[in-house]
């Protein structure tokens, strides 16, 4: 056999392997292309457009725009309603997250403690989660009405004078936050119930033999630590949903009175669609996105570090 023939023989498998790799790469790109196209059209594209708009003075419906550099962000920085909205959103999250987690956990523990009517209680508490917030907000608006609302009438029975909850600077944000808790805690409860079912009975048995059989000790030594991963998940979920608060504010207070219940997304909506200042609204969106992404990364890091057992 000649040297040439030998070389030829050896080269052939290598060439075939290269060909094979190329084909595999093509198939790979074909396989991811639907997802990739959707991601570009629905996520990256719009995000890029928003970032682009945030550097212009474009107004919704206008045919021309001009690049204004960071002017929008400077305006944002100097705009007291923006800061008010940012602080209010943080306060809202600070009320809604502990409220939802605490109430969800307490309800889950109560439901799991008694074997009767479990399904019924679960369904009842889950109903607000299934309902449309804007529709429910109308119901809450009626309930909180200063003169004909159920809340103030109930207070009147006990001889107390109610206030105009949604029109009072001191209570508007709180009322909206309570409605947020009411809507979200059913979801937290369902997650906690499933978490509770996963706690091994042998741990409770071990705790009982070790002398930790009181309610407080059982919670401290078994239940709460074992619910750690679920709790983290619920906190992350609730926080990100609370950060997006919009419908209840829009329907009930429009951010008023005097920006007392103004939140980021409502501010964004007003600027973009009420006042048609799209460029400014886009700058607000960019800030909002940055905050959300930062929070997500922080939470993901935190979860990985804190709640890993096995």
């Amino acid at each position: 056999m000649s040297v040439m023939a030998l070389a030829h023989r050896r080269a052939r498998p290598a060439a075939r392997r290269r060909q094979h790799q190329a084909a595999e790469a093509t198939v790979g790109w074909l396989a991811v292309s639907p997802a990739l196209i959707l991601l570009i059209c629905l996520l990256f594209g719009p995000a890029a457009a928003v970032i682009l708009f945030s550097f212009t003075d474009w107004q919704l419906g206008a045919s021309t725009f001009r690049f204004v550099g960071t002017e929008n962000f400077a305006a944002l920085w100097a705009d007291p309603p923006f800061w008010k909205a940012l602080i209010n959103t943080c306060i809202y999250v600070a009320i809604v997250v502990p409220g939802t987690v605490g109430l969800g956990l307490a309800t889950a523990l109560l439901i799991e403690a008694s074997p009767s009517l479990r399904g019924f209680y679960r369904a009842v508490h889950f109903l607000p989660v299934m309902s449309t917030m804007s529709a429910m907000a109308v119901v809450w608006g009626t309930m909180l009405h200063p003169s004909i609302g159920l809340v103030n009438r109930t207070l009147a029975v006990f001889g107390m004078t109610g206030i105009n909850w949604l029109r009072d600077e001191h209570t508007a944000l709180l009322a909206v936050a309570l409605i947020g808790i009411w809507q979200g805690f059913g979801f937290a409860m369902v997650l906690f119930v499933s978490g509770l079912k996963a706690v091994p009975q042998q741990l409770y048995d071990a705790a009982a033999v070790d002398g930790a059989d009181g309610l407080f000790d059982r919670l401290r030594i078994v239940t709460l630590p074992m619910l750690g991963p679920v709790t983290m998940f619920v906190i992350v979920l609730t926080a990100s949903r609370a950060f997006e608060v919009f419908d209840s504010v829009r329907v009930l207070t429009q951010g008023g009175p005097n920006y007392a219940s103004e939140v980021l997304l409502n501010r964004l909506y007003s600027e973009s669609f009420d006042y048609l200042r799209t460029g400014y609204g886009a700058a607000l969106t960019v800030v909002y996105l940055a905050i959300v992404i930062a929070l997500t990364i922080a939470q993901a890091r935190f979860i990985e570090r804190r709640v890993h057992y096995s």
């Binding site: 091994p200 042998q202 741990l203 048995d205 071990a206 033999v209 030594i221 078994v222 630590p225 074992m226 750690g228 057992y309 096995s310």
Partner: peptide, 11 residues
Amino acid sequence: MVFQSYALYPH
């Protein structure tokens, strides 16, 4: 008592 799954507190 010693359990089959050891039942140690994982945290």
